[in-house]
Amino acid sequence: MADLLEISDVRLSFGGLQALDGPNLAVADGEVVGLIGPNGAGKTSLFNCVSGLYRPQQGSIRVAGSEVTRLPRHRIAALGVGRTFQNLGLLPSQTVLENVLAGAYHATRGGYWASALAVPAVARTETAMRGRALTLLADLGLGEVAGRVVGTLPFGTLKRIELARALIAEPRLLLVDEPANGLIHGEVLELGATLRRLAAERGTAILLVEHHMGLVRSVCDRVVVLNFGRIIATGTPAEVARDPQVVVAYLGSAAA
């Protein structure tokens, strides 16, 4: 498998706070890599650097061979990077379908004004996007709620809608930020099966930030552990769970 995402010696600071202190990691096509660590370890900061929300002061981030550390967010998305967020950014007054289609705007040919003017080529693109969105919603078990207003739906369903919005543009790399937060056991199992299927059937590279260790163990090929912006361990879920440095980072001591 080729490495789709390559992160090398990334450093990010806010004033005197060192958020990222030189982590190096890679994610290959079809691979699910877990990124774990205590609160404040730098996990979301790393996501923000990959997706273009933050610009690191040093280091390299390459997606499919292209350097992205100085690219605007829409250019990074166009390279095939999709993302979900800890805090859902859905539009509560819009339908499920409309929310999912919002994730595809960067992939349309004409932008907002062309869409507003109903340029024929753009209209055809949007029709195709609508069909893709409906197929995706059905695939994620959301077909029956496509026309429902988002604000009327339960939290577990909202998490799946957020995932659908990230997937509508068919990303090659998917950054998933704490998707199990707030889900019940059955929903976590369903989510895990969906992520594994995306990797196996679509070849999607997935970088997963998650505190739910059951989900991490069930879906991740490898796990990378961050603490104070540095990588302190990497390996299979079982190997990382036995690492003394990981025990100290999470529990504050090496005691059993």
Rank of each mutant, 00 (worst) to 15 (best):
F85H: 09
Q86H: 06
W113F: 06
A180Q: 05
Q94N: 06
E190C: 13
G80E: 01
A238K: 07
V248H: 15
S8E: 15
T194E: 12
T194S: 09
L183Q: 10
F228K: 02
L35P: 01
N87E: 06
D177N: 14
L167P: 05
H211A: 09
L191A: 06
T204H: 00
Y250V: 06
V68D: 00
L134W: 03
L207V: 09
T204I: 13
M1V: 04
R172H: 12
R83M: 05
A254L: 09
G186T: 13
E31V: 08
L142D: 00
N227R: 00
H74S: 10
G192K: 01
N87T: 11
E126Y: 06
R75Y: 09
L175Q: 09
S51W: 04
L158M: 15
L90H: 06
I231Y: 00
E201S: 07
E126L: 14
N181C: 08
G65A: 13
T157E: 14
P244A: 08
I76G: 01
G110A: 10
L167N: 05
L12S: 02
L35F: 03
Q86L: 13
A114K: 13
R230K: 14
I232G: 03
V223D: 04
L134Y: 07
N48P: 04
T135E: 15
R132C: 07
L208W: 00
A255P: 02
L208I: 11
L97G: 06
V149G: 02
P38G: 03
L53N: 09
V246M: 08
I61V: 15
N99S: 12
L5I: 12
R11G: 09
E144K: 13
